[in-house]
Amino acid sequence: MATQDGGQSQSGKSRREDEVDEVAPEVNPEVAERVEQIGEDVDDLLDEIDAVLEENAEEFVRGYVQKGGQ
């Protein structure tokens, strides 16, 4: 019973696996390119964020205490 997931998936799993199989040669460069792009972007982004981040992270985070809610 516990190992029947192969049989169930006209939807989820098999679909995913099919796609990965079919498009793998195209996907990899695309992902790589995207990741590279993200990488370059992130450096600039982190520089900008450093400029707006609250000072003294530890104290600021420790001081953020909420009463309960829903």
């Binding site: 029947q4 169930q8 998936s9 989820g12 995913r16």
Partner: peptide, 20 residues
């Protein structure tokens, strides 16, 4: 773990809902 014993990821379950 599903009630019927299958093991699925959250993504599998979302795909199943999507397909339906």
């Amino acid at each position: 773990r599903l009630r019927d014993g299958r093991r699925l990821t959250a993504l599998d379950v979302q795909w199943a809902y999507y397909e339906r």
